[in-house]
Amino acid sequence: MKKLRMAIMGAGGIASCMARTIAEMENVERYAIGSRSLEKAEAFASEYGFARAYGSYEELVRDENVDLVYIATPHSEHFENAKLCIAHGRPVLCEKAFTANAAQACELLEMAEKAGVFITEAIWVRYLPMLETIRKELADGIIGEPTMLTANLGYVISQVPRLRRPELAGGALLDVGVYPLNFALMIFGGEVAKVSSVCTYTDTGVDEQNSATLIYEDGKVAVLNSSMLSLSDRKGIIYGTKGFMIVENINNFESLTVYDQDRREIKHIDCPPQISGYEYEVEACIRALEEGRLECPQMPHAETIRVMKMMDAMRAEWGIRYPFE
Results as ranks from 00 to 15, higher is better:
residue 243 G to N: 04
residue 21 T to L: 04
residue 127 Y to N: 00
residue 308 M to D: 08
residue 152 N to W: 11
residue 248 E to V: 11
residue 29 E to L: 07
residue 312 D to M: 04
residue 97 A to F: 07
residue 254 E to A: 12
residue 136 K to E: 13
residue 94 C to S: 14
residue 35 S to D: 11
residue 259 Y to V: 06
residue 84 L to V: 08
residue 258 V to P: 01
residue 44 F to K: 04
residue 282 V to Y: 00
residue 20 R to L: 14
residue 210 N to H: 12
residue 93 L to I: 08
residue 142 I to S: 09
residue 115 A to I: 04
residue 18 M to A: 11
residue 227 S to M: 00
residue 200 T to I: 02
residue 202 T to L: 10
residue 112 A to P: 07
residue 237 I to W: 03
residue 59 E to T: 07
residue 187 I to H: 02
residue 43 A to Y: 08
residue 287 R to Y: 07
residue 126 R to Y: 08
residue 240 G to E: 03
residue 102 A to V: 01
residue 26 E to D: 14
residue 244 F to I: 06
residue 198 V to S: 15
residue 75 H to L: 12
residue 31 Y to P: 03
residue 176 V to R: 10
residue 277 G to A: 02
residue 306 R to L: 14
residue 78 H to A: 01
residue 300 P to C: 08
residue 91 P to Q: 06
residue 294 L to G: 03
residue 107 E to Q: 14
residue 47 E to T: 09
residue 192 V to Y: 10
residue 60 L to Q: 01
residue 174 L to D: 11
residue 80 E to Q: 14
residue 181 L to S: 08
residue 308 M to H: 07
residue 323 P to H: 08
residue 235 K to W: 09
residue 196 S to G: 07
residue 130 M to L: 01
residue 106 C to T: 15
residue 275 I to P: 00
residue 38 L to Q: 15
residue 316 A to D: 15
